[in-house]
Design a binder for these strands. Structure first.
Length: 800
RNA sequence: GCGGGCGUGGCGGAAUGGCAGACGCGCCGGUCUUAGGAGCCGGUAUCUUUGAUGUAAGGGUUCAAGUCCCUUCGCCCGCACCA
């Protein structure tokens, strides 16, 4: 009988659905295991071949865990709020809710066709009011704990999406989503105080098992630095406060620089003789986009303040103050002390403005370039610091500053608070009301969910107002506090809101009393293994860790970290090695692959395509090899005979079980498959397979290719369903082969291969090696100075 | 500029410091066939082939290096005037 993958796959998908074998229970005698993959945004394009790479990997883990005796939660849902749906709705005059429903339907069908063992009874959708009720509830808790606040400030504005973006959403000066230009706009925005968690978000990385590049990237993004905050007196009377990581170089500060947006400038307006020039420079800086302003290697520009001087507090010298856009208002204090001898940017600026450069760390040549090395230099021209190393000088000067009351140690982070409002329709309404007398008032929890109203037009506006602002009867409401007239917040939450806590909802998705019951959360959390894209490292992954820590602090979440383990898959590129895109015409449609080769082949191929963590180009010819492999397994099963594992194959089976068992845990799916292919090659040589051998082979293969293996299981009469059986154990002792082929080297060069019995002693191995004809010729007439024996691997004779 | 990673056949990729190229694709040959673009069997790094040389290039450590160290080149990713 031929391998009819289409009927087999449909049959088993139906059986799994109807029997509910993959439903997880919230209590069980078995140990719990929570496997998680990022839920997709249901776009109009349908599933991308990249999605199944991640989903198959953890489906393999989930299926293996079930066979290992765990109660496994492997859920799926929809991260459905977002701009593409809204834009599609605008263009085609269909409500986003309807678009979402259609897209979800298609995605679900596609995922089911791939045979993932998701517990569909726990399906969630972030746009469902019964879901976003709790997203809004969490926002209210953040507000009540002072972690949500509204602030007027310069923000990133995407000119195409017509809404603000978080810092994390701006990539190389353009919008992360659409690639359009991002400009600065001053707007009043809801902000979330993620910076309050900066240190814990770094520290707690030590408590979780994330791949290193994720940890490094999050640490870099949070950007902790240590130094000192120092107050410089000025002739204006106000102290100018600066932050520096190099307080040791304080004696080398020959001028100061303020950001053009620094508030003291306004205060000093009357004192500044060149206020016109200052204003021109401020205006020019404000006009620049973030991208222009942060362009590297550009000429340093600035204006010297005439009328106010600063005083270096360690030597009482008067030094000039400049404004320049290389100093950012958003970091530190918005002002710096400039030490041109030991900072590259200050050096460039000093050269451009012909300012003095005083060396205070000896070891470089400050005539030619700034000397920024902290390891090797010695302090000079620095009064009490002379002769010290940089590290010693830092400690001493900070103690001195504290003693004199002019400075103190300080930690700074690059992380900024999270800009949380969006001027778009298709998102969660922010449950806040503005009252002229009471100010911002949170909606009572009893009024949640605050439903997204139906509007006629979802079109965003250039003025920066949300489409909801036009809904007068929705906007105008009563103040929950004083009962007077008030207006609702019309901005909505960003795409990242719903996904910041969705893994909690899966544990108890139908609960209408709480985001999830404490029992369910205690049982399942933390997520044991979470796989997702690297592109979310400083977005979703960071945001959800922040929310989770907050929920932990207020006693809602049971753990301080949401995910015990995080791994990441590489992207699948088009056949030409470029990123898949419609415009390049290199998009592979999963539906076509499933139709042409079947879901099992597709799953197997995506796992065999290469190193799981690296990008890999699609290959329409390589996939045939995976299809052939499954067909060969099918055909071999047709030749099954009764009996146990044949003695001569026992070692091979134990080694393959070990290899597959271990490789799945190490994300080495490609070599696990290679091991099964090699085993099949061995079996094929014998033209037959015993019942016990076949059983072992198809259990190992089941997590990768679940349909074909279940079908063989029933056809060959193994009883029950494969997914209810047990993962095979291996015996380390039986993994060893009876005889091994060892290499014999003379002076490190391969001269022969000899067959040795397993566990062969050194003496015996050396004797066998020397007895070899070619080895004999190579050592003839020379004296052996060293004999090396690596058991079971090689002999190396060093001769002279 | 800083930080991280990588560089192996025609291709995707394997190799706890111990036989480089597992496994697969492709290709070549054979077989079966009216036919083969299916299946099966065999082969497939290079060369001046009793041997020698090969893991981006050069140097080093070691009995032994794709793997460790140094230099250079190239590619990818992250951050990017963060004081």
């Amino acid at each position: 009988m031929a391998y009819d993958y289409q009927n087999i796959e449909k049959k088993w998908q139906k059986i799994w659905d109807e029997t509910g074998v993959f439903h997880a229970e919230n209590r069980s005698g078995k140990p719990a295991y929570y496997a998680l993959v990022e839920f997709p945004y249901p776009s109009g394009q349908g599933l991308h071949v990249g999605h199944p790479r991640s989903y198959t990997a953890l489906d393999i883990v989930a299926r293996k865990r079930r066979l290992e005796g765990y109660n496994v939660l492997y859920p799926m849902g929809w991260d459905a709020f977002g701009l593409p749906t809204e834009n599609f709705a605008i263009k085609n005059h269909i409500h986003p809710e309807i678009v979402t429903k259609q897209n979800v339907g298609r995605f679900k069908e596609q995922l089911k066709a791939l045979g993932f063992s998701f517990d569909w009874s726990r399906e969630i959708n972030t746009t469902d009011p019964s879901y976003y009720k709790w997203t809004q509830w969490i926002f209210l808790q953040l507000y009540k704990h002072g972690l949500a606040y509204k602030k007027e400030m310069a923000v990133n504005w995407c000119t195409s999406c017509k809404c603000v973006l978080a810092n994390e959403e701006v990539v190389n000066g353009v919008c992360e989503r659409c690639g359009s230009e991002v400009v600065r706009r001053v707007k009043s925005q809801w902000m979330l105080k993620i910076t309050a968690y900066a240190q814990r978000l770094i520290d707690d990385l030590d408590t979780v098992d994330y791949i290193d590049r994720v940890k490094t990237q999050q640490k870099n993004w949070i950007g902790r630095s240590t130094g000192a905050q120092v107050r410089f007196p000025t002739t204006a009377g106000d102290a100018l406060e600066i932050y520096t990581t190099r307080p040791d170089t304080l004696f080398g500060a020959t001028y100061m620089v303020m950001s053009p947006e620094h508030p003291l400038l306004e205060k000093w307006a009357g004192l500044l003789q060149n206020m016109d020039a200052v204003k021109d420079y401020q205006a020019a800086a404000a006009r620049k986009s973030d991208f222009e302003r942060s362009e590297v290697a550009k000429e340093k520009t600035g204006v010297r303040l005439e009328g106010v001087m600063a005083v270096n507090p360690v030597n009482d010298r008067q030094i000039p103050i400049f404004i320049s856009d290389y100093v950012l208002m958003s970091y530190g204090t918005g002002a710096i002390m400039a030490v041109p001898a030991h900072d590259t940017r200050d050096y460039d600026f000093a050269r451009a403005f012909n300012l003095p450069i005083i060396e205070v760390v000896a070891g470089g040549n400050v005539e030619q370039a700034a000397f920024t090395d902290c390891e090797t230099g010695t302090m000079v021209n620095s009064g009490l610091l002379n002769g010290l190393t940089v590290e010693e000088a830092k400690k001493k000067i900070i103690a001195y500053l504290e003693e004199k009351g002019i400075g103190e140690p300080k930690v700074n982070y690059k992380l900024r608070d999270w800009v949380f409002s969006r001027q778009r329709y298709w998102g969660e309404p922010i449950p806040m009301v503005y009252c002229e007398t009471c100010g911002w008032v949170p909606l009572p929890e009893s009024e949640l969910p605050l439903l997204l109203p139906a509007v006629d037009s979802y079109e965003p506006t250039d003025t920066g107002e949300s489409p909801l602002a036009k809904m007068a009867d929705w906007v105008n409401t009563k103040c929950p506090h004083c009962g007077g007239p008030a207006k609702r917040e019309t901005d909505t939450m960003p795409q990242w809101a719903g996904s910041s806590w969705y893994f909690l909802r899966y544990t108890d998705p139908h609960n209408d009393q709480a985001l999830a019951s404490r029992e369910a959360l205690d049982y399942w959390l933390p997520v044991n293994w979470y796989n997702g894209g690297m592109e979310h490292t400083t977005l979703h992954l960071l945001y959800s860790r922040f929310w989770h820590k907050f929920l932990f602090d207020i006693g809602v979440a049971p753990t301080s970290e949401p995910y015990a383990k995080r791994t990441s898959h590489g992207m699948i590129l088009g056949e030409n090695g470029e990123k898949m895109s419609k415009s390049k015409g290199n998009v592979v449609n999963p539906d076509d692959i499933v139709n042409q080769y079947g879901a099992d082949t597709m799953r197997l191929y995506e796992m065999f395509i290469g190193d799981f963590e690296k990008t890999a180009p699609w290959s329409s010819s390589s996939i045939k090899g995976c299809k052939r492999f499954l067909e060969r397994v099918w055909n071999l099963a047709e030749h099954m005979t009764e009996g146990g594992v044949r003695a001569e194959l026992e070692g091979a089976f134990h080694r393959t079980i070990r290899k597959v068992t271990e490789d799945i845990e190490d994300l080495k799916f490609n070599t696990a498959i290679a091991a099964m292919m090699a085993l099949l090659n061995e079996l094929d040589k014998t033209k037959t397979v015993t019942k016990e051998e076949l059983k072992l082979l198809i259990i190992l293969l089941n997590p990768f290719a679940p349909h074909i293996t279940e079908e063989i299981w029933v056809q060959k009469g193994f009883g029950g369903m494969l997914n209810q059986t047990e993962w095979p154990a291996y015996d380390e002792a039986k993994c060893a082969e009876d005889t091994v082929e060892a290499a014999v080297q003379v002076n490190g060069k391969l001269r022969a291969r000899i067959i040795l019995p397993a566990g062969c002693e050194k003496e015996e191995a050396l004797a066998a090696a020397k007895a070899d004809e070619k080895v004999g010729a190579a050592i003839n007439g020379k004296s052996i100075v060293k004999e090396i024996y690596v058991p079971g691997k090689l002999v190396n004779l060093v001769v002279k």
